[in-house]
Amino acid sequence: MGFEKFLFYVLAATLIAAAGMVVTRRNPVHAVLFLVVAFFSSAMLWMLLEAEFLAISLVLVYVGAVLVLFLFVIMMLDVDIATLKAQFIRHLPLALVVGVIMLVEIFLVVGPGNFGGESFPNPAPQGPDYNNTRELGLLLYSSYLYPFEIAAVILLVAIVAAIRLTLRHRPDTKYLDPSKQVYVRKGPDRVQLIRVPPEPRRVPPTATPTSGVEDEA
């Protein structure tokens, strides 16, 4: 028990530190990497609770997929952190006061007085043949069938909305059409040789002529 407790405190401290870094880092890429650390620590916390399947899926889904997408988006967007930071600093004192008050209140409510070990004793430990994933699946497809189906509809709405808001048909986009590619045969229509006459060597112009003049030369 002692070692588990030690692990819990180490992981919890890592989690809080990483979460703090996420909101205070100047570089958004660093912030995302700290978020990875935060997710790993919370996955380990779940592991301590013997929720192995959830811990692994948190790493697979969030770290493996969602945060990689985050990184892509952040690297592609040129986010101007300086202007965002200015607002952040300006409202910092008020936010700190409100945050500290909230933290104290939440600690008073969620603290050991209401959620201590005596009101929530540990569940009986399961044997080695207990399959976490199987039990979760059974629950999901029986007791929680209805919420599960609604979650599926929510994903459908997300797809429809994303396609509607972003898909535009652009006639000038170049793309490969596999159904046409398979009809390509050996022979004259597969490879076409074009004889290109060698370009005469030109002296680079000293002035800056327009491109049209250059083409005619």
Partner: peptide, 11 residues
């Protein structure tokens, strides 16, 4: 249900 409603409305 609330999220299903809200997501559709945002879009």
């Amino acid at each position: 249900g609330l999220e299903l409603l809200a997501l559709s409305l945002y879009a």
